[in-house]
């Protein structure tokens, strides 16, 4: 990150602070300083790290197998042996919630990474080349944004068929225009900067200018938006799973767990309570972190 910041003039990033001994603090370091001061943001970061650790360590931490059925142990209430109780097939819910973190975070990160890559590419092309290409790409973004997002995701999955992979693709598609528009507007403003004119004057190639100057200058808003997008991606994946359009059994996906257990809510409410809390906490973590990042990285985006 520091490397990145040094090669590019700080633009949207917080201004570098001059210290007494004339050392320039990189804008990223400065952002980290103000992020650290934000208590809620740090709580968010803590929650996110907590769930990432759970996702990585799930096989070590989990006391049982997430798919082995033991019908004799069906619908056991939470106890010392089964912290979160068991479901209708006698599977340990604590274990399934731990493994669920893997799925939700994976879908969240991978789908957002996909949207960022495709969205940035389209946004750069639209913003840098302008005219007809910009018109076409921008109209496509408008059209995609005109759908309520979960509806578009449902449409995509109903075409591709229900599966976790297709749910991920659907979520990636619905987020593409968000990043596309964001990068496009960054490109449009960066394009007018003098150092771009300078780069052109010394004969730098378009592709080099785009990668070395334009893209790094879009990093801050992409990181902010990306963090918030992971939160919505996790909720959307759970929603698709809940509707039976995402993960299929026996995958321990949180939304799917809720859907499978809702018929037993009277006998075994714990089967519904714990996966829901897991979704809510993870999403809360990313939301808090995203808000904090926005305040730290882009003072103008503060509300």
């Amino acid at each position: 990150m520091a490397e990145l910041a040094r090669t590019t003039p700080p633009l949207s990033n917080p201004p570098a602070v001059e210290q007494g001994d004339d050392k320039v603090i990189s804008p990223w370091k400065d952002a980290w300083r103000s992020f650290k001061k934000n208590k809620l943001a740090m709580v968010g970061l803590g929650i996110v790290i907590f769930f990432i650790l759970i996702a990585i360590l799930a096989p070590v931490l989990a006391p049982y197998s997430f798919s082995d059925q033991r019908l004799a142990d069906k619908h056991l209430a939470p106890s010392g042996e089964h912290w979160f109780g068991t479901d209708e097939f006698g599977r340990d819910i604590f274990t399934r919630v731990l493994y669920g973190a893997r799925i939700s975070l994976w879908v969240g990160f991978v789908s957002v990474a996909g949207s960022v890559i495709v969205g940035s590419a389209l946004g750069i092309i639209a913003g840098y080349y302008g005219k007809v290409i910009d018109g076409i790409i921008s109209r496509i973004f408008d059209i995609l944004l005109a759908f309520p997002s979960i509806l578009l995701a449902i449409a995509v999955v109903s075409v591709l068929g229900p599966s976790l992979r297709n749910a991920l693709i659907a979520i990636a598609i619905i987020n593409v225009p968000i990043f596309g528009r964001l990068v496009r507007s960054r490109v449009l403003s960066v394009k007018e900067e003098e150092y771009i004119t300078a780069a052109k004057a010394i004969g730098m190639k378009d592709s080099r200018i785009l990668i070395h100057h334009v893209l790094p200058n879009s990093m801050a808003p992409i990181i902010v938006q990306g963090t918030l997008a992971v939160a919505t991606a996790i909720i959307e994946a759970a929603a698709l799973g809940f509707l039976g359009l995402g993960a299929q059994p026996p995958t321990p996906e949180w939304g799917k767990m809720l859907a499978d257990s809702r018929d037993f809510i009277i006998q075994a409410p714990w089967t519904v309570i714990f996966p829901g809390i897991a979704i809510m906490l993870t999403v809360l973590g990313f939301n808090l972190m995203g808000d904090g990042l926005r305040d730290a990285l882009d003072p103008r985006m503060k509300n």
């Binding site: 759970a238 979704i279 809510m280 999403v283 939301n287």
Partner: peptide
């Protein structure tokens, strides 16, 4: 509230 999955 903003982090709550409505189905849950």
């Amino acid at each position: 509230g903003v982090s709550m999955p409505i189905f849950w």
